[in-house]
Design a protein around this nucleic acid. Structure first.
Lengths: 208, 208
DNA sequence: AAACGTTTCAAACATATGTTTGCAAGGCAT
DNA sequence: ATGCCTTGCAAACATATGTTTGAAACGTTT
């Protein structure tokens, strides 16, 4: 098998960038294939449909991330450490970063795609993600609950999602916010900088 | 002029709901006009284009909101009150609610549209919104800065946007989060409930 | 009632999109 | 080399979309 000129990877690489830039519906297969330098029919041949391509992109993102996060949580349990909120979030952040070649830009891209998945395309993607990787997320949530025993579970549920929202939004509009920051404050911040500022905000919000 | 069978309003009402549900690109003019019970050509006749329709929707949302927010800030300044963070946010929330017929659902719809504006359609809408209503937002920001003098302006800038992100995201996925909350905790929360929980989170995050 | 501007309508238009098809090219076993 | 399966390709297909058009319907003014 596998002539391996790398068609599949080239499609995935190109598509995830274009989708993140313009959105799913706004990005045509022709735009993807032409920029990737492959034939138009290649997408339908290798993935079956545009929807399946989108799912494949998320799978490529989420599979290594969830694997690493699971491993991190397992090791944390093995060490018998008392989970601390800030430490947990930092672990999550480090894992997310590590799973994608330690590139903050790529991490931002992932969050931007996640944001799109939550706003657009109500249907298939959200179901796919929850069914596929929902349990890892839930395990992390129960870990969080142990870290903040004074916050009732229901309250925690909402605050975690508020924090997730802050993250997704910040990453989604990272570029324009950084531009705005530069024009308003003459300060150029990196993606890593923003992430560092995000963490205390979430911790403060969850602790309230 | 004005035969006034309410075609324009019916288009706006229908379009804002459909856009919020499915996104801009995913909602066709035919879907809008058929559900609104008007002719397909009516959109292009009354608004000129689909883009102009989208802008008109945001204008209808933002114009009364910014007017009321401006008035509230003016009165606050006239009273000479010391601005308090929680009070300010509550004022903002109350104003936003009041500007749209005191319907939490409609407010959620507005935030969902805002979220879409920030993720999709990078171009025309964001420019339009910032040029049209940016100054009111900036005035509110300087008010906030006075309320939290211990937080440096740059830090505040980012935390406010984190809070905005949490809000937008929460409102955007309000329905699915409420469903998830019901299935996980057997607790049914109203949109107003969620908003009430959101406020302490943001306050905590900004104060950090 | 006649003339005018505004609004509505069905139909057509041009185009962009996801998908399918039929065949050629390439690698790998027998 | 022959046969076979996988991959690549250009072209066509079917359809959905935003937009335009020309005439009919309506209300107002003269």
């Amino acid at each position: 098998m596998a002539a391996q000129s790398g068609t599949v990877e080239r499609i995935l690489d190109t598509a995830e960038v274009l989708f993140a830039e313009k959105g799913f519906a706004e990005t045509s297969l022709r735009a993807i294939t032409s920029k990737a330098g492959v034939n138009l029919a290649a997408v339908n041949y290798h993935f079956g449909s545009k929807e399946a391509l989108i799912q494949a992109i998320f799978e490529r993102f989420l599979a290594p991330f969830c694997a690493e996060l699971g491993a991190s949580m397992a090791q944390l349990a093995a060490d018998g450490e008392t989970p601390d909120l800030e430490r947990l979030l930092r672990m999550m952040s480090r894992t997310a970063l590590g799973a994608h070649g330690s590139s903050p830009e790529r991490l931002a891209l992932f969050f931007r795609l996640s944001g799109l998945a939550y706003t657009q395309a109500q249907g298939h993607l959200r179901r796919f993600i929850r069914e596929q990787y929902g349990d890892v997320f839930n395990r992390f949530l129960t870990l969080l609950a142990k870290a903040v025993p004074d916050v009732p579970p229901l309250e925690l549920f909402w605050r975690v999602h508020f924090g997730l929202g802050a993250t997704v939004f910040a990453m989604s509009s990272m570029d324009s916010l950084r531009a705005l920051c530069k024009s308003d404050f003459d300060t150029e911040l990196s993606a890593a900088d923003v992430t560092q500022r995000l963490l205390p905000f979430i911790v403060g919000g969850i602790r309230a």
